[in-house]
Design a protein around this nucleic acid. Structure first.
Length: 208
DNA sequence: GCCAACGTTGGC
DNA sequence: GCCAACGTTGGC
């Protein structure tokens, strides 16, 4: 089996939050209208792990985990003139935009805020932390992924950089527990924001 | 609300 | 192909 990759996806919680994903169990990730982000979507494989990031939130931060449950396929919203994701230049015989399906994995008890990510030396170089980084779909290394998860656990436990628990020789490494996958109900709800190449339709602004 | 950073568009 | 104008993202 191909090794699983790790990603970070941004969403405005007012548009689509980790809480909504938890409730839905799974969702479609339409609406990405940026070529670089699209290309990353197309690289995704079922089982890839996803950091679910809340942008334009207070505070912005990684709010939980998801996983890829369906690889990339043409984004039909690009063909729908009524959709805010409509792109008249995307033809059905040559779809320009792609989307994936995401499954809920876990909602952090508390999001890991952006300033905490920035302050962590282990996350130096992470795309999200680059000045001016706007990419809504971005790869992260496994090391970065694991570190963010660790930060989430530590913060809620209220302990500083915990020393690893001693483990009996030969004992299996503890697995990060994932909450049971909620029932797979298909939802169709625009949420991923991205640069519009389509002339109409503004993404929902969440505040100002 | 401000604005830096970035992507896209279109005139030339 | 250049690049100015414009629109968007998203932290602050």
């Amino acid at each position: 089996m191909a090794p699983k990759r790790c990603w970070l996806l941004k969403s405005e919680p007012a548009s689509y939050s980790i809480e909504m994903l938890e409730e839905d169990g799974r969702t479609t990730w339409e609406g990405v209208r940026n070529y670089q982000a699209r290309n990353f979507l197309r690289e995704m494989k079922v089982g890839d792990r996803v950091l679910f990031y809340h942008s334009n939130a207070e505070p912005p931060g990684v709010a939980g985990l998801a996983q890829v449950v369906h690889e990339a396929y043409p984004d039909p919203f690009a063909f729908d003139p009524a959709s805010k994701y409509f792109d008249p230049d995307s033809k059905t015989d040559d779809p320009r935009w792609s989307m994936v399906d995401l499954g809920f994995v876990e909602r952090f008890d508390e999001p890991v805020p952006l300033p905490v990510l920035r302050a962590d030396p282990a996350l130096e170089g992470m795309e999200l932390l680059r000045k001016g980084s706007r990419l809504s779909v971005q790869p992260v290394t496994e090391r970065q992924y694991d570190r963010v998860v660790q930060l989430a656990r530590e913060r809620f436990a209220g302990i500083p950089a915990a020393a690893p628990k001693p483990r009996a020789r030969g004992a299996a490494a503890p697995k990060a527990k994932a909450k049971p996958q909620a029932k797979a109900k298909a939802v169709t709800k625009p949420k991923a924001r991205a640069t519009k190449s389509a002339p109409k339709s503004k993404p929902t602004r969440t505040r100002k």
